[in-house]
Design a protein around this nucleic acid. Sequence first.
DNA 1: TTGTAGGCGTTATCAC
DNA 2: GTGATAACGCCTACAA
Lengths: 314, 314
Amino acid sequence: MEKRQVTLKDVARAAGVSHQTVSRAINDKGEIDPETRRRVLEVARELRYRPSRFARGLVSSGTITVGLLVREVVNPFFPELIAGVLAAADERGWQVVVASSENDERREAAAVRSLANQVDVLIGYLMGPAPEDGLPLVVIGREGADIDVDAEGGVRQALDHLIDRGHRRIGMLDLPSPWGRREPFLEYARERTLPIDAGWVIDTESVDPDGGTAFERLRAVHPDVTAVLAYNDVIAVGAQRAARRLGLRVPEDCAFVGFDGLTIGDLLEPPLTSVAIDKRRMGELAVEQAERLLAGTPADRIILETTLEVKGSS
Amino acid sequence: MEKRQVTLKDVARAAGVSHQTVSRAINDKGEIDPETRRRVLEVARELRYRPSRFARGLVSSGTITVGLLVREVVNPFFPELIAGVLAAADERGWQVVVASSENDERREAAAVRSLANQVDVLIGYLMGPAPEDGLPLVVIGREGADIDVDAEGGVRQALDHLIDRGHRRIGMLDLPSPWGRREPFLEYARERTLPIDAGWVIDTESVDPDGGTAFERLRAVHPDVTAVLAYNDVIAVGAQRAARRLGLRVPEDCAFVGFDGLTIGDLLEPPLTSVAIDKRRMGELAVEQAERLLAGTPADRIILETTLEVKGSS
DNA sequence: TTGTAGGCGTTATCAC
DNA sequence: GTGATAACGCCTACAA
């Protein structure tokens, strides 16, 4: 299978000219006889010549390539983020190599290692620790990341809203430590003197969670729960649907608030209230950070504020 | 900004060794004094040395890179396709450069041109004509593509199902020509002697369509419609929600069938019946095709069969 | 208009 | 263990 690729010289030999002339023909340089050019291109096509991007990149500094490592492409959170990165990269004439860890820390590490050799800078929505290479790296979406979300603020927006609506017994469906947001939730609940403790926070099984099951576990412990804040919309959607299956009216019997502001929330009945993140902008900001890194400027941390989008579910 | 990048030789000079020794240190080759290695790596880090992927790729034939051009990352159809491509590429140790045309033919053409120089093979969900370059190209998802969906079969499955359910006055919400599926729809409707003609097919405004508006236009023309087949699930979702807004009961007053089998269909109430495509597999098959192309084997056309997934909406 | 020389940054090969 | 030297495929000069 690995028959050495066709090079300029091969074409040159076959066409009876120097490799330089071939180069001229391929790159549409002016100084060449139209007839020669035609003939050379013809031969090139016959030989299925394809220029080596490596050789080209070597001589004329090639396109900048940014790696984008996400957790899961089919999780509706990521397409918007990816779209933001693609758009910002496109503006700059950059390429984007996308990879997915599939929520697996080992695959994540492997992907980072592999990308490290193939890209100029990496944007990573990482689960595990940041790698120690010299690779310019923009970490997004988690505590202490270069681009982070104001999770505390978001939790407060959600709780303020629910409390305004008269709720006191509010449960939370969280991700397992250390990814969850139980601390800000419990802390602010205490500040607002809600009658709830750590028992009101239910961790889902994994980072690819089933909100329905989690909600049922919450109700098993606290049947009197009147409102639920979920770690994200995917969990909230599962939870709210489970509630409907159990015959509960939403929001009368139980209100639901998600996190992320995914468009899928609007498909539910009633549509899901959510603490929205501008995911697209997050991707764009990540590319800006990457640009800074590449220029040698130190990265500055950016915190994205959330926006509460009140819909019918609360 | 373009300060020439640090090379092996720079490191070599700074460390007082030959560039070859630096190469050995960087690549963890055996034959080198541990102390030398340590020192060299130290210097390399200080100088922020990063190996050139181009030079590396040139000397040792580099990683295979496949370009993936989709229409819109945030359209829920594509993430699954992308996931399939990523998975199959990962298996082979390939990289994937993702680009989006944002449903714009000019941007699509530009993206193809740009990718042509940067990838070994391109997988494209194209709207416009296939480019004439020598670039190995796998076209997917449209009539006559290398990987295509059996649209006729899918339409028949949908109509058979609706007719079984007793429907006769069935409308279709289609994409504008030449992307739509009106022909197979009308043809099979005639074959099954349904009392409908071309007036029962409503084209949406664009390829990024509003199913709700289209449904309302359909009802304006044919208020007695009892079932709707949509070109895809995105349209169907919009249409069904519009129906609910109009106070229609689904499926009693009007049934809905989508196309694609997106997971978002399950969030609707009632969940959307759909002619499902295995999008993930489509991506995997595209990579297999790409592999064949790279090996010089001629591409063989593959037709993906659809599966009718009956849910509550019909 | 065309051909020849040199170098891009890296790795492989072979001396030392 | 280490260092010259020669590729890899291409492009930019400059010479013919």
